[in-house]
Each structure stands twice: as C-alpha cells, then as structure tokens.
Computed example of a mutant assay.
Amino acid sequence: MNTSLTVREQVVCHAVTVIMMRGYNGFSYRDLSELVGVKTSSIHYYFPAKDDLVLVAVSEYSKEALNDIYSIDASLSTDAKLAKYTKKFGKVLGDGDRICLCGMLAADIESLPDNIWHAVQAFFKANENWLAKVLTQGVDECTLAVNGKFECAAGTLFAAYQGSALARRLFQTRSRLENVASAWRIVN
C-alpha cells in the first residue's frame, strides 16, 4: 500500500478491494487491520461502524468510476464509447478476481442499511443514464437498434456488464466482458 496515504485512506482502499472480492459480509475490521498494519481500534476511530466504512467506500468508488465514464469524449462514435466504457469497466475488475463494488453489494442488498442501498442504486442509475444517452446516439447514427425505451435497454446493457463480470470471474476469461459491447453492434 502507498505509505503516502493516510491510515483512513488506506482503510478505504483496502475495504473497496476486499468488498469487490468477498462482498459486504465477507470481511471484518480485523481483515483490514492486518492489511493496513494498525489495530482495529484505529479503524473504529475513523469508522465507528462497518456501515460507515462501506458507505464511504461506495462513495469513493462511485466518484472515481463515474468520473472515468464522464471523461469519455462526447464526440466519439457509439462503438468507440462502448469500447471505452468496456475497457474502463474491465479495469476495475483487475485480473478477474474482483466484481464491480456496487454489483457485489447489490448481491448483498438484504444485508445493507438503506443509505448504502440507495448509494448502490444511485451508482446503477448513473451508469444506466449514461448508457441510455449512448444508445440514443447509436440509434441516431444507425449503428444500433433498440427495441422499446432507451432506459430499459440501458438497464439491460448495464445488467449484461454486471453479469459479464460474474461470468468473467467464474470462467476466468476476459472475453465475457468484451463480448457485451460487441453484441450491441449492427453490421451494415
């Protein structure tokens, strides 16, 4: 871990990674204390409850992921945008040992307090809204066909990305993720 980070920042970074690998119920402050090299009481100083830490982890993860997405050049073609989105989505998955943080937490949704539940929903909605705009552009460019509402198609596409992350981890192959964007292209 980068020693220029504060203990609080190190805890959040490790929490994000551990949640992506094990989910909400798969880690404890003891796990994080070993990773950071501090006592669990030090973690409780910054985050009195696990829910406090997870909410900050979701917030930090969401901010970084959405900034990455929003940085995709608006003047690009739909195919180029989806390719960049796929690459950025894949980047957070590492070598296939991780799942999108919010996707992993969505699987644990019944264990989560409402504020984390809403933060995870907001992440999904932000991705779906961005994808709906890209799908609209693709229809306008005649490079995509969308049946029904763009919002529904975007939700389906984001679900495909999330599902591909699970399948990528299960089958240990990157192609699961890369196939998602290519499945939406129209060949002229």
Rank of each mutant, 00 (worst) to 15 (best):
L82S: 03
C102E: 01
Y85I: 03
K91S: 07
A80D: 03
S77L: 13
F89I: 02
S77M: 13
M104F: 05
D79L: 12
C102Y: 06
F89P: 07
V92S: 07
L82C: 04
M104Y: 03
K81I: 13
T86L: 05
A83D: 15
C102S: 05
L76C: 00
F89H: 04
D79F: 14
G96C: 08
Y85D: 01
L101H: 08
F89Q: 00
D97Y: 11
L93T: 02
K88Q: 13
S77Y: 11
A80E: 11
G103K: 06
L76S: 01
K84Y: 08
D79E: 10
C100T: 02
K91V: 11
C100F: 15
K87A: 12
T86I: 07
Y85N: 07
S77D: 01
K91T: 08
Y85H: 09
K81D: 04
K87V: 10
Y85M: 14
I99Y: 13
K91I: 07
V92A: 12
R98Q: 15
K81H: 01
G90Y: 00
C102D: 05
K91E: 11
D79G: 08
A80I: 04
D79I: 09
G94P: 10
F89A: 05
F89C: 03
C102N: 02
L82M: 09
K88S: 12
G96S: 00
K88H: 03
V92L: 04
T78Q: 13
G94T: 00
G96T: 04
Y85S: 06
M104G: 10
D97G: 12
D95E: 13
K84N: 12
